[in-house]
């Protein structure tokens, strides 16, 4: 619906403007990117960089939990690029023949414990999440971050009892930021994006799974040229710089 609205808006504004300059850049035009919620801030910045590199292009983004995006794609939502926060969900897209070509890892991420600003509960590591006075929340089991969090907790030998299974990482961050929950496990990049409203507690590398982000062109893309150009941009020096500005690490 929202996408339709945006398209309608784009169509209306296109009619009203002077004829577009004849552009030799095939990557121009509307580009719809479905991306994991944890990529929100970084992809908005990457979108600006992509626009600068390809004048006439107009990337729009749909951010949601990776399983939600997958469901939308399975139900035929129009997208050109799919960026998944984990391998299993991308594999499901490959198996369903939703994407064209081999998916590529374009960034990695690490987990961090998100706590209230200034760490009022003095949480120093994963073991503290099982403390009786710590209200811990996590993500629903199919959200990639929840799977990585389970790996980290297993490695640390901690079994905290979550009070809520939020629909995505942003849900966890916002409830911690509001003070309704004391702690959750999210990506380093999420804590960084909410800096000031929350604080982060590092998880040692030995317990911290590296989350690989994969991107692929959607088989039914309306704008395959732009899709490929966007993926190339993400892997280029400029794209990588944009991503690393938000705390992502190289593939």
């Amino acid at each position: 619906m929202r996408r339709f609205f945006l398209l309608a808006l784009a169509a209306v504004s296109a009619c009203g403007s002077v004829p577009a300059p004849v552009s030799p850049d095939k990557a121009g035009g509307d580009l719809s990117v479905f991306a994991a919620a944890s990529l929100t801030e970084a992809f908005k910045a990457a979108g600006t960089g992509f626009k600068a590199a390809h004048p006439g292009s107009n990337p729009t983004f749909n951010f949601a939990g990776t399983p939600t995006l997958l469901t939308q794609l399975l139900q035929g939502a129009g997208a050109d690029v799919f960026a998944s926060a984990d391998q299993p969900n991308m594999q499901k897209a490959v198996d369903a023949k939703l994407v064209a070509g081999a998916p590529r890892v374009f960034a990695t991420n690490k987990l961090e414990i998100v706590v209230g600003a200034g760490n009022p509960k003095h949480i120093s590591g994963l073991a503290d999440l099982a403390r009786a006075d710590v209200l811990y929340i996590t993500e629903a089991p199919d959200v990639p971050a929840a799977k990585y969090a389970a790996q980290a907790l297993a490695a640390a030998g901690v079994k905290p009892a979550p009070r809520s299974l939020e629909a995505d990482v942003k849900g966890v961050v916002s409830k911690v930021a509001l003070g309704e929950a004391d702690a959750g496990i999210v990506y380093v990049t999420d804590v960084r994006a909410a800096r000031g409203r929350v604080s982060g507690v590092a998880i040692p590398d030995a317990q911290n799974p590296r989350a690989g982000y994969l991107v692929a062109e959607v088989r039914a893309a309306h704008n395959p040229y732009a899709a490929r150009a966007f993926i190339d941009y993400l892997l280029s020096a400029g794209g990588q710089q944009a991503l690393q500005g938000f705390g992502f690490t190289p593939p």
Partner: peptide, 25 residues
């Protein structure tokens, strides 16, 4: 409900929340 009470099976996960989250798995 999902905003105020969160989502946890048996405690706060009502039918509509289950419908929404099951759609993914």
């Amino acid at each position: 409900t999902i905003t105020f009470a969160g989502n946890f099976p048996g405690r706060t996960q009502t039918m509509p929340l289950a419908v929404y989250l099951l759609l993914e798995s």
